[in-house]
């Protein structure tokens, strides 16, 4: 019992510190003024990055032109959002059946420090095999995020760190143009029709 009390008190202290850090940190980019058009992800033809998938293949945005594409940002040390998103996507791909074979599906890690190609391969082996995991240098991942107008931030916590990141799933048409986003909290019933529209 005494141990448990200590743990609870510890949590309180840590939570207070985290709340303080969150309050101070805020989102540096939040107040940056952006016109409406700037908020949309660029077409793949205008993006520029070079990442590596879990099988060691180099992937560039232009490689995705010609097939509809689904991309999201995440990291494998996250216990809640990422397994949930990967389960959702695996479910959508199953529901799409053979149509899903025409899709490029990629998770771009926002945590290249821990998510090496090997770690991504191990993690993704538990989900639909059509999902590829991309990692690379922090600089290349930042270039990718800026093309998608996505954001991520490393947050120190409890001798460790966590990542805040854009949670939606991006859909692109086969011509490489941005189609739509499936929001994290969007009703899952709308996801598959949205993907079908992007597939065209």
């Amino acid at each position: 019992m005494r141990i448990r009390r200590a743990v609870i008190l510890g949590i309180g202290g840590v939570a207070g510190a985290a709340a303080f850090a969150l309050g101070l940190g805020g989102w540096r980019t939040r107040n940056r003024s952006q016109s409406g058009a700037d908020l949309l992800p660029l077409p793949f033809a205008d993006m520029s990055f070079s990442l590596t998938d879990q099988r060691g293949n180099m992937v560039r945005p232009e490689d995705w032109i010609g097939r509809p594409t689904m991309v999201f940002f995440g990291f494998t040390w996250c216990p809640d959002v990422c397994p949930t998103t990967l389960s959702d996507i695996s479910g959508w791909l199953e529901e799409l059946g053979t149509d899903a074979d025409r899709l490029n599906v990629a998770m771009i890690t926002v945590d290249p420090e821990r998510d090496t190609t090997e770690v991504l391969g191990d993690y993704l082996s538990h989900f639909d095999p059509r999902i590829i995991g991309l990692t690379g240098t922090l600089e290349e991942i930042e270039r990718a995020a800026s093309g998608f107008r996505a954001r991520f931030e490393k947050l120190a916590r409890d001798d460790d760190y966590t990542m805040n990141h854009t949670a939606g799933v991006f859909l692109f048409r086969s011509d490489g143009g941005f189609a739509s986003i499936i929001d994290y909290h969007e009703d899952r019933r709308f996801a598959v029709p949205k993907i079908r529209r992007a597939i065209g």
Binding site: A15, D80, R151, N164, T166, D183
Partner: peptide, 14 residues
């Protein structure tokens, strides 16, 4: 898990 402006974060819950 809190998603604000499509950014997922994971604050402690006191």
């Amino acid at each position: 898990t809190v998603v604000t402006e499509d950014i997922a974060s994971m604050p402690h819950a006191m």
